[in-house]
Amino acid sequence: MSRPALHFPDALFHPDSGVGGGPRPPHGDHDSLWVQNDRAIIDSIQDRVIDAADSLGYDTNAQFALRLALEEAIVNAFKHGHKGLPGDTPVHFEFEVSPKRIYVIVEDQGPGFTPKAVPDPTLDENLERPSGRGLVLMRAYMTRIEHNAQGNRVEMELIRPESRE
């Protein structure tokens, strides 16, 4: 995949382009977008992914997991990945919601980090450290999460459980 241009305002996601209210027929969804660090925009892309998952019958546990993982991945990208970069630097976001799996990529434009270097916040000695829990939650709630070698791109996958209650 060729890397898109860094600043590409035409492709920036706007809340208005999201889905409207009301029930909709089952629909998968996929897109590739540049996202700004703006709460309304972040909320609306989360809503768009979750709305598609909901329409395909992913249950409330999956939707909860999805919102949490999306939140942590996007916030990490802006807060840690883009530390020191101009505030309007966008993050690249890709998703695909299909009946069997949900696939998400969040890529920031920062230098990257080493996930293994983040202290395990679940160890007794780290329980009182206020940060570092986003990764733990993403790993717990997604079926698979993987960082690229540079550490500026996370790929997450949620496979739909075969048997559901």
Binding site: F64, R67, L68, E71, E72, V75, K79, L127, E128, R129, P130, S131, G132, R133, G134, V136, L137
Partner: peptide, 13 residues
């Protein structure tokens, strides 16, 4: 209904 790791950090502080 939802809270993030950042909210957990605030509770720890």
């Amino acid at each position: 209904d939802h809270l993030s790791s950042s909210a957990l950090g605030t509770l720890i502080t």
